[in-house]
């Protein structure tokens, strides 16, 4: 079991007004096996980003545990957990340090699991490896190692971030809508890149996306979240059989359910007033 999420609950705004309190995740449990490529979909407020943040350690859950490769990491802070994880964020500016060169950024990624010592940060042996990986991207970046990352385009930055996330094989790769901010052509390229890398390195991957076609096209397992619950979990053949229309129908069902709930609550309140 590469990633085990056990009974995670997370609420926001506990101290605020009743209407503002949100249960982002409600006793969610999930087992992800080594080599799974899981795509996660869900409406706004379904809890997908919260789930990813909890796996990454950006904030702690209210209850429950997270295990990575058998180790309980629930109490580990974000930077201590980083050695197990590779992350690509939605915002292309988030994954790299803009004023540092590609080479410097990659050096940082290389040492993700190591202590930062006072040894000189640029290593010649690393350069060769960096050039190799950058070449495989086919973006011409291998000749621009000393260029500041801030000067690259969004798609190029995401590609570099992806490389940084996977350069030292992570136990789990977390992709948080990482193509949402790119134009369709670049998004496609980056997704193909993602798929190749995941396949080559056999990475356990979780990818959040709001594009249902992509959610079905990539990965071997699909999970749908709604109001902090996992309401749908298919893999293998069952997943391959699904079409985007099936998923849309599922969403409509859920919306109708929600509306009914709201109407019911209003009726109850009206009755109370009488």
């Amino acid at each position: 079991m590469m990633l085990k999420i056990e009974n995670i609950t997370k609420e926001f705004n506990l101290t605020g007004a009743v209407e503002d309190r949100r249960i982002a995740l409600d006793h969610v449990s999930l087992d992800i096996h080594d080599g799974d490529f899981v795509t996660i979909i869900g409406g706004n407020g379904s809890g997908k980003s919260t789930l990813m943040n909890i796996i990454a350690g950006a904030f702690p859950p209210d209850s429950g545990k997270v295990y990575i490769d058998g180790e309980d990491v629930t109490k580990l802070t974000e930077y201590k957990r980083a050695k197990y994880l590779g992350r690509v964020f939605q915002d292309p500016n988030m994954g790299t340090a803009p004023n540092m060169s590609i080479e410097e950024n990659m050096e940082l990624a290389y040492r993700r699991d190591q202590k930062k010592t006072l040894r000189w940060g640029f290593k010649k042996e690393h350069r060769k490896k960096f050039i190799e990986s950058l070449t495989s991207l086919n973006l011409g970046l291998e000749t621009r190692l000393s260029q500041k990352v801030g000067l690259l385009s969004g798609g190029q930055r995401q590609a570099v971030t992806l490389l940084m996330a996977t350069f030292r094989k992570p136990k789990v790769l977390l992709l948080d809508e990482h193509t949402a901010a790119l134009d369709p052509k670049t998004a496609k390229k980056v997704l193909e890149l993602t798929d190749n890398i995941v396949r080559e390195q056999k990475l356990t991957t979780i990818m959040i996306t709001h594009n249902m076609r992509d959610a079905l096209k990539y990965g071997n397992r699909l999970i749908m979240l709604h109001h902090g619950h996992i309401i749908f979990d298919v893999e293998g053949e069952d997943k391959n059989k699904l079409t985007p229309e099936d998923l849309l129908r599922k969403f409509d069902e859920l919306e109708n359910q929600d509306e009914e709930e709201v109407i019911q609550t209003e009726e109850v309140n009206e009755n109370k007033c009488d």
Partner: peptide
């Protein structure tokens, strides 16, 4: 330097 530029990214690279 990475911390000063982008704290979130720094933490994602294992930097305290």
């Amino acid at each position: 330097r990475a911390t000063g530029m982008n704290q979130k990214m720094a933490r994602a690279q294992g930097i305290n």
